[in-house]
Amino acid sequence: MNPKHLANSILFTVIIMFSTTALAEEHLIAQNSKSFQLSGSKVEAITIKVGDTIRFKNEDPFFHNIFSLSDLKTFDLGSFPKGQSKTVVFDKAGTAEVECAIHPEMFMEIIVQ
């Protein structure tokens, strides 16, 4: 391979990698007072971009168990205590319904665009 082409393709790959990581965002969804919260207030839905990450963080003094059985994304984060968090990457467009298995009143939608 022509060294110039090689250099170009490496540069290209680096730019693409850099730009996708720069575009993908992380959103913090807290579990607080038995509800899903975004920046301190209750959320029922959040709109994010394909490739974004949601970080679910438990702020209650008891366990939660976040899961989704929706077509878009199926996951079960298991139960984790106050202060700990787990992440989910949403890599396709669509809507995922997210619930807490222990407290079914905790319910929200993740709209991936």
Binding site: N65, L69, S79, E99, A101, I102, H103, P104, E105
Partner: peptide, 29 residues
């Protein structure tokens, strides 16, 4: 808390909430 928990009763026959939501933590909850 209007929630569902397995509190460690001996009952091998009843899956409890797991019959409604297939999430591991709900077996016997």
């Amino acid at each position: 808390d209007n929630g569902f928990h397995n509190i460690g009763l001996e009952d091998a026959t009843d899956a409890g909430r797991y019959a409604i939501r297939k999430v591991k933590i709900l077996i016997g909850a």
